[in-house]
Amino acid sequence: MPGLEDLYREIILDHYRSPRNRGELPVPPAHKVEGFNPLCGDEVVLYLDVDAGNGQVRDVRVSGQGCSISQASTSMMSAAVKGKPLSEVRKLIRAFKALMSIHESKLEGDGGGLDEDGLAPDGADGNAALDDVRLGDLEALQGVVKFPVRIKCATLAWNTLQQGLDEVATPSPAG
Protein backbone atom coordinates (compact mmCIF):
# COMPACT_ATOMS: atom_id res chain seq x y z
CA MET A 1 0.00 0.00 0.00
CA PRO A 2 1.43 3.40 -0.95
CA GLY A 3 2.06 5.54 2.10
CA LEU A 4 1.51 9.22 2.70
CA GLU A 5 5.22 9.88 2.19
CA ASP A 6 4.83 8.69 -1.41
CA LEU A 7 2.24 11.37 -2.00
CA TYR A 8 3.41 14.19 0.20
CA ARG A 9 7.14 14.38 -0.54
CA GLU A 10 9.01 17.08 1.38
CA ILE A 11 9.54 19.23 -1.71
CA ILE A 12 5.79 19.15 -2.36
CA LEU A 13 4.98 20.25 1.17
CA ASP A 14 7.60 22.97 0.85
CA HIS A 15 5.95 24.37 -2.28
CA TYR A 16 2.56 24.07 -0.60
CA ARG A 17 3.69 25.99 2.47
CA SER A 18 5.78 28.53 0.54
CA PRO A 19 4.21 28.80 -2.89
CA ARG A 20 6.39 30.46 -5.54
CA ASN A 21 5.25 33.22 -7.90
CA ARG A 22 2.02 33.98 -6.06
CA GLY A 23 0.25 37.08 -7.26
CA GLU A 24 -1.18 38.69 -10.35
CA LEU A 25 0.02 40.49 -13.47
CA PRO A 26 -1.78 43.33 -15.21
CA VAL A 27 -4.11 42.05 -17.95
CA PRO A 28 -3.30 42.96 -20.68
CA PRO A 29 -0.47 42.67 -21.53
CA ALA A 30 -0.52 39.44 -19.48
CA HIS A 31 -3.04 36.70 -20.31
CA LYS A 32 -5.25 35.36 -17.53
CA VAL A 33 -6.50 31.78 -17.58
CA GLU A 34 -8.48 29.85 -14.97
CA GLY A 35 -8.71 26.14 -14.35
CA PHE A 36 -11.12 24.28 -12.10
CA ASN A 37 -11.32 20.79 -10.76
CA PRO A 38 -15.07 20.31 -10.51
CA LEU A 39 -14.63 17.26 -8.32
CA CYS A 40 -13.06 19.04 -5.37
CA GLY A 41 -13.35 22.74 -6.13
CA ASP A 42 -9.63 23.27 -6.67
CA GLU A 43 -8.99 26.46 -8.57
CA VAL A 44 -5.88 27.63 -10.40
CA VAL A 45 -5.55 31.10 -11.89
CA LEU A 46 -2.53 31.78 -14.08
CA TYR A 47 -1.25 35.12 -15.34
CA LEU A 48 1.00 34.47 -18.31
CA ASP A 49 3.31 37.12 -19.74
CA VAL A 50 4.26 35.57 -23.06
CA ASP A 51 6.79 37.27 -25.33
CA ALA A 52 5.45 36.15 -28.68
CA GLY A 53 8.38 37.69 -30.54
CA ASN A 54 11.04 35.79 -28.67
CA GLY A 55 8.77 32.81 -28.08
CA GLN A 56 9.30 32.91 -24.35
CA VAL A 57 7.28 32.79 -21.14
CA ARG A 58 8.65 36.03 -19.70
CA ASP A 59 6.78 35.86 -16.42
CA VAL A 60 4.09 33.89 -14.67
CA ARG A 61 2.04 34.52 -11.54
CA VAL A 62 -0.44 32.21 -9.89
CA SER A 63 -3.41 32.56 -7.60
CA GLY A 64 -6.32 30.34 -6.63
CA GLN A 65 -6.84 27.80 -3.94
CA GLY A 66 -6.89 24.10 -3.46
CA CYS A 67 -5.30 21.06 -1.89
CA SER A 68 -1.59 20.69 -1.25
CA ILE A 69 -1.09 18.65 -4.40
CA SER A 70 -2.79 21.10 -6.75
CA GLN A 71 -1.17 24.13 -5.16
CA ALA A 72 2.30 22.57 -4.95
CA SER A 73 2.05 21.39 -8.54
CA THR A 74 1.05 24.91 -9.58
CA SER A 75 3.93 26.43 -7.68
CA MET A 76 6.46 23.97 -9.09
CA MET A 77 5.09 24.50 -12.58
CA SER A 78 5.46 28.25 -12.28
CA ALA A 79 9.07 27.92 -11.18
CA ALA A 80 9.80 25.46 -13.97
CA VAL A 81 8.40 27.48 -16.87
CA LYS A 82 9.27 31.04 -15.88
CA GLY A 83 11.75 32.50 -18.36
CA LYS A 84 11.71 29.39 -20.53
CA PRO A 85 11.28 29.27 -24.32
CA LEU A 86 7.77 28.30 -25.37
CA SER A 87 9.00 25.21 -27.18
CA GLU A 88 10.63 23.98 -24.00
CA VAL A 89 7.52 24.77 -21.96
CA ARG A 90 5.36 22.78 -24.39
CA LYS A 91 7.72 19.85 -24.06
CA LEU A 92 7.65 20.13 -20.30
CA ILE A 93 3.85 20.04 -20.30
CA ARG A 94 3.89 16.88 -22.38
CA ALA A 95 6.57 15.30 -20.27
CA PHE A 96 4.75 16.05 -17.04
CA LYS A 97 1.45 14.75 -18.34
CA ALA A 98 3.19 11.66 -19.63
CA LEU A 99 4.65 11.15 -16.16
CA MET A 100 1.12 11.22 -14.80
CA SER A 101 -0.50 9.14 -17.55
CA ILE A 102 2.10 6.44 -18.19
CA HIS A 103 1.55 5.24 -14.68
CA GLU A 104 -2.14 5.87 -15.00
CA SER A 105 -2.48 3.42 -17.89
CA LYS A 106 -0.90 0.76 -15.75
CA LEU A 107 -3.48 1.13 -13.03
CA GLU A 108 -5.90 -1.69 -12.79
CA GLY A 109 -9.54 -0.89 -13.28
CA ASP A 110 -8.78 2.46 -14.82
CA GLY A 111 -12.20 3.50 -16.02
CA GLY A 112 -10.65 5.91 -18.49
CA GLY A 113 -11.50 9.55 -18.37
CA LEU A 114 -8.89 10.33 -15.76
CA ASP A 115 -7.06 12.22 -18.41
CA GLU A 116 -9.30 13.27 -21.22
CA ASP A 117 -7.25 16.23 -22.25
CA GLY A 118 -6.16 14.87 -25.55
CA LEU A 119 -2.63 13.82 -24.72
CA ALA A 120 -1.24 11.96 -27.69
CA PRO A 121 -0.86 8.22 -27.14
CA ASP A 122 2.57 7.46 -25.80
CA GLY A 123 4.07 5.78 -28.81
CA ALA A 124 7.79 5.07 -28.98
CA ASP A 125 8.36 8.29 -30.90
CA GLY A 126 6.52 10.37 -28.35
CA ASN A 127 8.58 9.01 -25.51
CA ALA A 128 11.82 9.40 -27.36
CA ALA A 129 11.06 13.05 -28.02
CA LEU A 130 10.56 13.59 -24.29
CA ASP A 131 13.64 11.71 -23.18
CA ASP A 132 15.77 14.85 -23.02
CA VAL A 133 13.25 16.78 -20.93
CA ARG A 134 14.51 17.34 -17.39
CA LEU A 135 11.66 17.28 -14.90
CA GLY A 136 13.88 17.93 -11.89
CA ASP A 137 11.88 18.65 -8.75
CA LEU A 138 8.70 17.87 -10.62
CA GLU A 139 9.53 14.20 -10.41
CA ALA A 140 8.58 14.41 -6.76
CA LEU A 141 5.00 14.51 -7.98
CA GLN A 142 5.14 11.09 -9.58
CA GLY A 143 4.03 9.49 -6.30
CA VAL A 144 0.64 11.05 -7.01
CA VAL A 145 -0.12 8.39 -9.61
CA LYS A 146 -0.39 5.82 -6.85
CA PHE A 147 -3.42 7.80 -5.65
CA PRO A 148 -5.59 7.87 -8.78
CA VAL A 149 -8.19 10.32 -7.52
CA ARG A 150 -5.43 12.88 -6.86
CA ILE A 151 -3.95 12.83 -10.39
CA LYS A 152 -6.37 15.55 -11.46
CA CYS A 153 -5.06 17.71 -8.62
CA ALA A 154 -1.52 17.46 -9.98
CA THR A 155 -2.40 17.97 -13.64
CA LEU A 156 -4.78 20.91 -13.12
CA ALA A 157 -2.05 23.59 -13.31
CA TRP A 158 -0.52 21.99 -16.39
CA ASN A 159 -3.78 21.67 -18.27
CA THR A 160 -4.54 25.26 -17.38
CA LEU A 161 -1.11 26.35 -18.59
CA GLN A 162 -1.62 24.49 -21.87
CA GLN A 163 -5.01 26.11 -22.30
CA GLY A 164 -3.51 29.54 -21.60
CA LEU A 165 -0.69 29.07 -24.11
CA ASP A 166 -3.17 27.87 -26.73
CA GLU A 167 -5.30 30.94 -26.12
CA VAL A 168 -2.29 33.23 -26.47
CA ALA A 169 -1.29 31.47 -29.70
CA THR A 170 -4.83 31.67 -31.12
CA PRO A 171 -6.67 34.63 -29.59
CA SER A 172 -10.42 34.14 -29.50
CA PRO A 173 -12.56 36.57 -31.55
CA ALA A 174 -13.89 38.02 -28.32
CA GLY A 175 -10.35 39.01 -27.47
Binding site: L4, L7, Y8, C40, D42, G66, C67, Q71, R150
Partner: peptide, 12 residues
Protein backbone atom coordinates in the same frame (compact mmCIF):
# COMPACT_ATOMS: atom_id res chain seq x y z
CA UNK B 1 -5.28 22.48 5.47
CA UNK B 2 -7.39 21.54 2.49
CA UNK B 3 -10.26 19.10 2.97
CA UNK B 4 -8.79 16.64 0.49
CA UNK B 5 -5.48 16.49 2.26
CA UNK B 6 -7.29 15.79 5.51
CA UNK B 7 -9.29 12.95 4.05
CA UNK B 8 -6.17 11.48 2.45
CA UNK B 9 -4.56 11.11 5.86
CA UNK B 10 -7.79 9.78 7.34
CA UNK B 11 -7.94 7.11 4.66
CA UNK B 12 -4.65 5.72 5.93
Amino acid sequence: IHAHDISQVLDE
